[in-house]
Simulated assay, not measured.
Amino acid sequence: MSTIVSFKNVQKTYDGETLVVKNLNLEIRKGEFLTMLGPSGSGKTTCLMMLAGFETATHGEILLQGKPINRIPPERRNIGMVFQSYALFPHKSVAENLAFPLKVRKVPKDEIARKVTQALNMVNMEKFASRMPAQLSGGQQQRVAVARALVFEPALVLMDEPLGALDKQLREQMQYEIKQIHEQSGLTVVYVTHDQSEAMTMSDRIAVFNNGIIQQLASPSELYEKPENAFVARFIGESNELKGVVASVDRELCTVKLDGGHSIKASAGVAVSATGGASVSLRPERIAVGERARSCDNVFQGGVKDLIYYGDHLRVVMQVCGRNDFIVKLPNDGAARQLRIGDSVDVGWMADACRALQ
């Protein structure tokens, strides 16, 4: 798969001292859906704005289709943009909003009408062409904003927290629709969000940002199953974190002596060696309780502190290995429903279900 965007040693500072983006090297593949994910202030939005042309890189170079674009103004980059605020012209109809970027590019009138209709069909908004933005719901306005970004057939579409203003149900529906549009059109999409579930649902690859640095770039499943550091393990999904020191390493497995004195077997992360501290990441749904726990590689006694009913599963807060906030997710079956606050039960997990990170 060919590369459409390259960031080469890109840095960004606003005050001349603090780097918001630090030596970013990133290649975005043509046709992929890549999400820049991270907490507020991690540098993800700044990267998107530099790519769009609304911010200037302090150092380094950004290439689009092999050509440097640092000095090219936004309107000449052939990039579509979707904002959280929709940014529709309130005095123009839906069709006029979509026609605007085509008129700026001096597209012939009959071609404009064809392209507007095509873009509206793509987002199922063909019946609303004559409506004004104020006559549309939030979800409908966002569909129009997506259509406007696609109408001039850009080389690249950038989306900055586009679903942040929508309610949960509509947000999930729009996630599916945007993913469908991406798959049908073959467009390259670069998407920015701080919502991990949104990133996991939509992306081919995710770049996890923190402190201006990409912590890991991988597929959703790889980020979840094989985080490369403790930040990624905490930020992607939910994780129990146990602190200790690596006692030994044997190929892909290691033994970690926890701060409380217990020892556990875990899969060894890429940088793990038998010379330093480690953080063991363990997903709550990988943990067994009661009879099921006894055949696991790691088995401990746990005290049930709280039970929270979620319908399809029970969330159990336990005291395990010296931690009072140890979380276990259990299917809502007969065994789980027998648990009571104050119970002392076996808790266990396999070595390959937890990951030691340094």
Results as ranks from 00 to 15, higher is better:
Arg77Tyr: 04
Val82Met: 00
Val82Thr: 01
Gln84Lys: 03
Ala87Met: 03
Leu88Ser: 01
Phe89Ile: 07
Pro90Lys: 12
His91Gly: 12
Lys92Trp: 11
Lys92Arg: 15
Lys92Ile: 09
Ser93Gln: 10
Ser93Pro: 11
Val94Cys: 07
Ala95Val: 13
Glu96Phe: 10
Leu98Asn: 07
Leu98Thr: 06
Ala99Ile: 07
Phe100Met: 02
Pro101Met: 02
Val104Thr: 15
Lys106Cys: 09
Val107Asp: 07
Pro108Ile: 08
Lys109Gln: 14
Lys109Ile: 11
Asp110Tyr: 05
Glu111Met: 12
Glu111Tyr: 10
Ala113Thr: 15
Arg114Trp: 03
Arg114Lys: 12
Arg114Cys: 09
Val116Ser: 06
Thr117Lys: 15
Ala119Val: 10
Leu120Ile: 05
Leu120Arg: 05
Asn121Ile: 02
Asn121Ser: 13
Asn121Tyr: 09
Asn121Cys: 11
Met122Tyr: 04
Met122Ser: 07
Val123Ser: 09
Val123Met: 05
Asn124Tyr: 09
Met125Leu: 11
Glu126Pro: 11
Lys127His: 08
Lys127Pro: 08
Phe128Val: 06
Ala129His: 12
Ser130Leu: 15
Arg131Asp: 06
Arg131Ala: 14
Ala134Asn: 15
Ala134Pro: 12
Leu136Gln: 07
Leu136His: 10
Gly138Ser: 02
Gly138Arg: 01
Gly138Tyr: 02
Gly139Gln: 05
Gln141Glu: 02
Gln141Cys: 06
Arg143Ile: 00
Arg143Cys: 04
Val144Phe: 03
Ala149Asp: 03
Ala149Met: 08
Val151Asp: 02
Glu153Pro: 00
Glu153His: 05
Glu153Tyr: 00
Pro154Gly: 05
Pro154Ser: 04
Ala155Val: 15
Ala155Ile: 09
Met159Gln: 10
Met159His: 10
Asp160Leu: 05
Asp160Gln: 00
Glu161Thr: 11
Glu161Ile: 09
Glu161Asn: 07
Pro162Glu: 01
Gly164Trp: 00
Ala165Pro: 04
Ala165His: 08
Leu166Asp: 03
Asp167Met: 12
Gln169Arg: 12
Arg171Val: 03
Arg171Met: 04
Arg171Ile: 04
Glu172Asn: 14
Glu172Gln: 14
Gln173Glu: 14
Gln173Arg: 13
Gln173Val: 13
Met174Pro: 14
Met174Lys: 12
Gln180Ile: 12
Gln180Lys: 15
Ile181Asp: 04
Ile181Thr: 07
Ile181Gln: 07
His182Val: 08
His182Pro: 04
His182Cys: 06
Glu183Pro: 14
Glu183Ile: 15
